[in-house]
Design a protein around this nucleic acid. Sequence first.
DNA 1: TTTAGTGTCATAGTTTAATGTGACACTAAT
DNA 2: ATTAGTGTCACATTAAACTATGACACTAAA
Lengths: 126, 126
Amino acid sequence: MDFSEHKNIFLQIRDWLVDQILIGKLQPGEKIPSVRELAADIEVNRNTVMRSYSLMEEEGIIENKRGIGFFIASDATTQLQRIQKREFFEQELPGIIHKVEVLKLNSQDLAQLLQVIQSNDHENKQ
Amino acid sequence: MDFSEHKNIFLQIRDWLVDQILIGKLQPGEKIPSVRELAADIEVNRNTVMRSYSLMEEEGIIENKRGIGFFIASDATTQLQRIQKREFFEQELPGIIHKVEVLKLNSQDLAQLLQVIQSNDHENKQ
DNA sequence: TTTAGTGTCATAGTTTAATGTGACACTAAT
DNA sequence: ATTAGTGTCACATTAAACTATGACACTAAA
């Protein structure tokens, strides 16, 4: 796991875990690495991982069983689809549209993106 | 000017000025606000604005005339189109594509974005 | 020559993310 | 009961962004 300079580490850890859930590598009900284990694994302090987990607990993404550890909430996937979509539309999309405008990016520049969108269109039809 | 919590202020100032250039509100050769003036205007410390200007000077976006102030470089617009495009493709686009995939966003969700892209396509043809 | 406006440097203080450690209560298995 | 693994809290410390302020050299205009 490589961290970006321009975003807080505890947020990047949260983002990474969220992604693991959304792509299905972490399933609802499943136990996630312990605070100490993950901290050692990604070479970060215990308290930093603790902060990520506390945030995700507040968001209802994970739940704690005392003395045992954290587990993915049963409705985590649905919750996240909602949370992440909302965040994307409100926080990111406007900035993306603006950049596409001022940089005058065309279909050729964004071919790969358009392909994914088209692919999603077909999935929804079935 | 409202600052985001999750990005350094001196970078946000740079981003804002870059945008002003790209949308044509600041033209090549034009003088930009003095360090003290802009600092007072956006209620930020002198040194923070100074840091933004130093960064932009290193990037070749602005130039200094001793005792007078900073001016937009003559080739700033072309330079920025290049720099910002490269940064977008390398730093942002991959993450965007990934999110569109996992959140299964379709043409309807991204209608506004697609419209801008299409509009850019038509511009380039002329 | 004086004055006001420019960037620039230096120094000190505040805030917050991240680190480093120690200690404690809980749970499960030995 | 003991042990190992869990989260959790309580410090102290480091690093970096941002603030606050003073001082200096330069330029243009009065």
